[in-house]
Each structure stands twice: as structure tokens, then as C-alpha cells.
Amino acid sequence: MSCTVSMTVNGKTVSREVEERTLLVAFLREHLGLTGTHVGCDTSQCGACVVHVDGRSVKSCTTLAIQADGATVTTIEGLAAADGTLHPMQAAFREHHGLQCGFCTPGMVMSAVDLVRENPNPTEADIREGLEGNICRCTGYHNIVKAVKAGADAMQGAQAAPVAAE
């Protein structure tokens, strides 16, 4: 059985006819060609597939595309500014060498952004607990934790800057 699914992905409205069983991650990767979102496991454990649905981090491998019908979805491709300027969290991952092979990175960054949204000043323990649903095999997490802390500070700074200018 097929169905029509419509949503806003990275600011663009999209609509596709898909099988009902189509997962959100397959919708993004196969139907929209947004291959930045990865599939690293089949038990909803690794977090490589994390995207934002209506601003909240979601494992897109465990979400049906139809569940996101009408939603606003942001993937890693949509995180940087339109002019290509990296999101502060992306920039922090680069600065602190928070990635190696890059495969877990999109999910890790998307989780980190949502983590900071919920907790703007996370401690190291908060960050480690908050990223418990994202597995990285390369970095040993050490530099990811540093990057998320720096990214959180930068996100705070980015929000504070206009206020300071007033």
C-alpha cells in the first residue's frame, strides 16, 4: 500500500508517494537524496540517524515517514546557514576534532544541538549522559564532549550577542 507524505524538510516543502512502511530515514535518503543522515544499526541504538522533527531530536530509523507527515524536519544538510556558515555546533566539532570517520557525526551533531536546547549550560556529565543514545567508535568521546561544551557556549554566545548589542 502506498500513501502520500508531505513535510517541510530543511525549509522546503516536499511531497512523495511512498509505501506505508517507509521509514523516515529511507524517505530522506532514498526519496529526497539527503544522504547525510546515516543508518548504523537496526535496533534504534546507535543514533547515526538522528534528525530534528519539529525541533526535537528523533531517531529517523524508528520513525515512519508518515508519522512525520505535516512536520518540519531538519537534517544535517539543513543545519548550516544558507550562506554556508557552519552552525556553532558544527564549527565546534571541527575546532575540537570531535569527528574522525564522520559516519556518526551527523546524528551526533543533531543530538548535541537538541541537548543544548534542553540544557543550555551542560556539564561534562550532562553531555555524556545526553549523548548516551549516540555511538561513536572512533573518537572515544573525549573530543566530542569538548566540542559539545564549546558548541553550547557558542550557541549561548550567538543568542546573547544581539542582546548585548541593544
Partner: peptide
């Protein structure tokens, strides 16, 4: 030196085998 490969990985523009169509 900060890694030059990071730009593509951080923006979802990596090219892994399963990404090819």
C-alpha cells in the same frame, strides 16, 4: 591543523558507499 575533510562530514556531504545511486 584542523581537518580539511570535516567540512563535508559536518554538513552531510560525505560520500559513503551506500550513498551512491
Amino acid at each position: 591543523v584542523r581537518r580539511r575533510e570535516d567540512q563535508r562530514f559536518l554538513t552531510g556531504r560525505g560520500n559513503y558507499t551506500d550513498d551512491f545511486k
